[in-house]
Nucleic acid binder design. Sequence first.
DNA 1: TTGCCGCCTTTGTA
DNA 2: ATACAAAGGCGGC
Length: 294
Amino acid sequence: MKITLNPTTTPFNLDYTLQCGQVFRWEKHGDWWYAIVAKKATKIRQTSNVLEFEGVDASFIEKCFRLHDPLPLILSKISRDAHIRNAIQNFHGLRLVRQDPWECLISYICATYKNIPAIQNMIGNLSRQFGHEITLDNHSLYTFPNPTTLAKANITELTRCKLGFRAKNVHETAKKVDTQTVRLAELETMPYEAAKNELLKLPGVGEKVADCVLLFSLNKLEAFPVDVWIKKTILENYHEYLNIAFVQKALKKKSLTPSEYRQIGSFARGYFGEYAGYAQQYLFHHERSVCQAV
DNA sequence: TTGCCGCCTTTGTA
DNA sequence: ATACAAAGGCGGC
């Protein structure tokens, strides 16, 4: 199947979107990107303004890649200064992806204190160990294990997936989701703060992980995850909008207190507006690309 | 109630 | 090779 995009009203760049570090399970073979989404093996490629795909229908692709988000409007709203305009220009067509909340939750619990290649490894290990295989074009893809499966898994099996100290958090979170102690399915209908408070009840989920899950899977575009890269770029490029003592203190420490974290988040929402999450993704990808080869 | 400290496994990268 | 950083969170004080 194919979708033809109008590049003026619906700019989109598939490679930027899948390479910017928000998703961990899409793999590129030749021109095609492969993954399992919604339990179905799928592949997609982009040739200029045409998206070609198999395995899912057009409405799912539009939802998954947020093609109905009014990107030109969003970009005009977050283009508040030369720094972010530069990031937007460098990655024209980058969009947020709408992920499955459960897979997104486990992915970002695993992302704690890990770099992106290592995260891809951990999530791949979990899927091979606990998911089931689906083959497409001779590529083996694996479904992501459901909450019940990971709740029943023992710590030794999880540790074998190289999760390290995250194995216990993944296991305990899986139990709480499986028993509906935290109802993931209901969070999208809740306001940002309320949904965040629910996520914070899960072990391994702090301010940053909660914001990632809210932004990447629960449609909260005001979520502004502050990781080491975003902390760096905010303190370097936006210090004039922050208290001097606050900036100097934050620069000295590796991790932020919840209070400091929330100060940066509320600055970002005030400065970039309701689409602060999009600003975060452009700033994140830009900062990473100038500091290391991506 | 809040801040700070040290620790948590393992991999990537220089 | 050996060190240091990595899309942080948590319990102790």
